[in-house]
Design a binder for these strands. Structure first.
Length: 288
DNA sequence: AGCCAGGCCCTCC
DNA sequence: GGAGGGCCTGGC
C-alpha cells in the first residue's frame, strides 16, 4: 500500500537518527513493530510504500502517516531555523528527515534504557524487553512481539528486567512502569500540556531527568521546542557557540539558551545537529 | 587494565 | 545550585 507524500520526506535518516530503536533495515526495506503490527516500509518516488499485518493496510495507513511525522510542515520548520549556518548545513545533508510521533510509553522506556549506553545496546535491551514481556504478534515471517504495556512491565518486576542485562536501568523501569500503570502520570494527556508542565510530570518519574524527558517530549509528545542536551549536543554547542557563553552553562541552562536561540522548532534543530554530529564522528575530539 | 558510553540520583559543599 | 562520585554492562 502507498502513502502519498507530495512534500519532503527521507525515510532512512528518519528511522536511523536515534529517535527509535526497533526498526531493522535490509536493503531499502525497514521492518518494525508499530500499532501492534509488523510493518515493512520503503521509500518510493511518490511516497511511502508499506505492508503490514495482522491488521489491514487501510486501517494502518493513517496511523503510519501520523507516526512518520508527515503532518509536519517541514518547509516552515526549515524557514524558522535556517538562519543558523550549522543547522542550515545539516538540513542540506539530511533534507526530508522528520521527527517521528511515537507512542509515549514506548519512547519513555527506550530513553530510560539509553542512559550511558549506545544504539546497538539500547536496541538489544528494548528487543529483549519485548521478547520477554510483550504480546506475540501473529504474522508470517520474522516472529516479533508488541511493546510491553506499562502493566506488563510492572508485572515483570525489577529482578526479571535486570536479568535481561538492563543493569541499573532495571530499577528505573520497574518503578516508572508501576507509576504509569497506576495512573500517577497520564502520558497521552501530556500532548495537551504546556512544555513546562509536561517536563515536571515526566521528571517526577524514576530514571527520567531533563535529557530523557526532552527526548520523550520531542519524539512522542508534540513538544517541538523540546531540546535534549546529551554529550554530543553539549560538545557541539560548546564548540560552535562559545561566543554566546555556552561553555560555562549547566545543562538545563544550555537547553534554555538553545530553545531561545533556535525558537519554536528547536527540537528539529537539535535532531539535525545531533544526527550530523554523530555521522561525522566529531564527538570525541572537538573540531577534529 | 582502565576508561568511557546518547544519564540519573544522591550527597556534600 | 553545582560539583563529584557511584551505578550495570559492553566495547575499545
Amino acid at each position: 500500500m502507498l502513502i502519498p507524500v507530495d512534500g519532503l520526506f527521507a525515510l532512512a535518516p528518519t528511522l536511523e537518527s536515534g529517535q527509535t530503536f526497533r526498526w531493522r533495515r535490509s536493503g531499502d526495506v525497514f521492518e518494525g513493530v508499530v500499532f501492534g503490527n509488523v510493518v515493512k516500509v520503503r521509500q518510493a518516488d511518490d511516497g511511502v510504500e508499506f505492508t503490514c499485518g495482522p491488521d489491514d493496510g487501510k486501517y494502518l495507513a493513517p496511523l503510519l502517516s501520523d507516526y512518520l511525522g508527515l503532518a509536519t510542515d517541514l518547509p516552515a520548520v526549515y524557514r524558522s531555523m535556517s538562519h543558523d549556518p550549522r543547522v542550515s548545513e545539516a538540513i542540506d545533508r539530511y533534507r526530508g528527515m522528520r521527527i517521528l510521533r511515537q507512542d509515549p510509553w514506548e519512547c519513555l522506556v527506550c530513553f530510560i534504557c539509553s542512559s550511558a549506553s549506545n544504539i546497538p545496546r539500547i536496541s538489544r535491551n528494548v528487543e529483549d524487553l519485548c521478547a520477554s514481556f510483550g504480546r506475540p504478534i501473529l504474522v508470517e515471517g520474522t516472529p516479533r512481539r508488541a511493546f510491553p504495556t506499562p502493566h506488563e512491565l510492572a508485572e515483570a518486576g525489577e529482578r526479571r528486567i535486570f536479568e535481561l542485562g538492563l543493569g541499573y536501568r532495571a530499577a528505573y523501569l520497574a518503578k516508572t512502569a508501576g507509576a504509569v500503570a497506576d495512573g500517577a502520570v497520564d502520558l497521552m494527556s501530556l500532548r495537551e500540556e504546556a512544555y513546562g508542565d509536561a517536563l515536571v510530570a515526566l521528571t517526577s518519574l524514576d530514571g527520567v531527568g531533563d535529557k530523557v524527558a526532552n527526548c520523550v517530549m520531542l519524539f512522542s509528545l508534540d513538544q517541538t521546542s523540546a531540546f535534549p542536551v546529551d554529550v554530543w549536543i553539549k560538545r557541539a554547542l560548546q564548540e560552535w557557540y562559545s561566543d554566546a557563553g555556552v561553555n560555562k552553562m549547566s545543562l538545563p541552562k544550555m537547553r534554555l539558551w538553545a530553545q531561545e536561540y533556535f525558537g519554536e522548532y528547536a527540537g528539529y534543530a537539535n535532531q539535525y545537529l545531533f544526527h550530523d554530529r554523530r555521522l561525522l564522528g566529531r564527538g570525541v575530539t572537538a573540531g577534529a
